[in-house]
Structure formats: C-alpha cells, structure tokens
Design a protein around this nucleic acid. Structure first.
Lengths: 136, 136
DNA sequence: TAGCGCTAGTCTCTTTTTGAGACCAATATT
DNA sequence: AATATTGGTCTCAAAAAGAGACTAGCGCTA
C-alpha cells in the first residue's frame, strides 16, 4: 500500500497562478517533478546504455535501497520511460529496458548531465567560496 | 561501469563504496542532486528570464513555502547559479539574479523543460494506460 | 536432506526532509 | 492606532526516504 498509495499529483483545484508565464507551465512541472527525483536520472542514465535486471541495477547503484529502487522504477515505468518484462525462469527475473519515449527524453537530459560533469569544478569552487564567506 | 558514485551532500560524510568505486569520479551526481529538487528548476526557469525579489518569487510560485523558497534559493546561490543582492531600502529588499554559470546551465536544462512541455501528452497517456492495467 | 543463496520484491520501523503557520523589527498605509 | 509589507527564522506536524528483516520456489552442496 505504501508504494501504491502514490500521491495523486499536485492539488488540482488551484490554477498555476494568474500572471503570465506559469499558466502554460503546469504540464512541464507535471513531467519534471517525476524525473527530478534523486534516483531517476541515475537509473535513466544506466538504462539508456542497455537493459538491466533489478539486481544488476541495485549493484550498479549501491546506495539505493531496494524500496526506492522498486518505487523509482515503477514511477519511470508509469510515465512510459522504461518497460518492465518478466521472464518466468526458475527464479523469475525481471528486465528493465528504456522505451523510445525514454530515449527521446534522455537526449536533452544527457546534455545536462554532460554539463554537470564539465562544470563540476566551477560549482565546487562556488560552494567553497560561499561557505568561506558564511563563516564570518 | 563508472556510474556516478555515492558521494553524498556535505551533511553526509559517508564515503563511496569500498570496492572499485572512485569517489572522486562522481561529479555528475554531486551537481545533479542539487538541481534535481522539486523547486530548483522552477526557480531557475523564473530567474533565467529576469531577476526577481523574494516576495515576487513567492507569488510566482504560490505553492512553495517560505521555508523551502529560502532554502532552495540559498542552495542555488551556494552552487553559484544565482546571486543575492540586498538593497538597504526602507524595508530592505533582496534581489536574486542568475549568474553566467546559471545561464550556461539553463541552456541545456531548458531543452529538457521544452521536451517536457512537448511530450506531456505522451506521458499522460502512458500514465493512464499504466493505471488502467493495474486496476485488474 | 538440511542448509544456503539467488530471484524481485514487500513490510515495518526509524530517521530525514518537507509543509504549515506563527513570529520578528522597522516602515508605510489606512 | 491598527494593519500590512519587507525577507526571512522558528517550531511542530506530516510526508518521504533509509535500514533491514521477511517472503517463496528452485538449485547447489555438504
């Protein structure tokens, strides 16, 4: 129940504001909120490369709990980014595979990941500067 | 498989795994975890357009609490994406403005946001299909 | 044949994060 | 004189996430 009791999206009674830009942006938020999780991009990056099974993903991302792995994979599946295929082998195995929609998302997303890798030194420097100035 | 290792935020001193895991080689996660929050992209999108003051942002994103607005702005500032400038007016006002680093991040990021807007129908359809199949 | 591990998860408990709302001091408005 | 606005902080409750035990059927092996 815990997992399935997944929250219905944002309160819908209220529009996204009345002034200009936000009105058309609720769909964006609806989509972004799901891929903005702590683990989503990590799993998407893995599955963009190749399909993986549950246990493989768990080993690939050692600090994710089984609970969050299950939940995140299900969320990604629900939004259509990945497919879940069960093989009725002796111990049943499950394979997760990125869909076409997932790949089309990952194309722009990978640019952000690349930016993060490239600019990491600048970010680290900014952090250090900020923390020093705060110490006063 | 050099996925980003588990270097956690500054509050968490836990080292990355013990076996074959390069702690220094997970810069992507270090950066992404910060902009992957629920409110970060929303604020970045606003500030990419123009500078805003605290209260303006609060009105622009009506469902953010003051507490999270303060905290998210400070995180974004710490990572060097935005600047905070205090004007000693009668009631002191504070302006937040995107930095060059922030703009350079927003360039690839905006592509993802655009994708989200474009593909929202597909995602919604996937969700509906998933939820129907689960109902059985 | 009793024990172990593997599969993909779920269940419960605890800790962390987030949300809601009161409070702040100085000034401006009504 | 009472009230609202400025940009926050503080406390407390609710939600989300982390940790770890538990499940079932099968294969291996000691």
């Amino acid at each position: 129940m815990d997992l399935h009791a997944a929250e219905k999206p944002h309160l819908n009674g209220k529009e996204c504001g009345t002034s200009g830009w936000d009105a058309g942006n609720c769909p964006v938020r609806d989509v972004i909120d799901r891929i903005a999780g702590k683990w989503s991009t990590l799993l998407l990056e893995a599955l963009a490369r190749q399909p993986y099974r549950f246990g493989e993903l768990r080993r690939l991302v050692p600090d994710i709990s089984q609970r969050m792995l299950t939940q995140t994979l299900r969320d990604l599946q629900r939004d259509g980014y990945i497919d879940r295929q069960v093989f009725p082998t002796k111990p049943p195995s499950v394979e997760y595979r990125m869909t076409a929609l997932g790949h089309s998302l990952f194309e722009p997303l990978s640019k952000v990941l690349q930016w993060a890798g490239d600019k990491h030194p600048a970010v680290k420097a900014a952090r250090q500067k900020f923390d020093e100035g705060e110490l006063s």
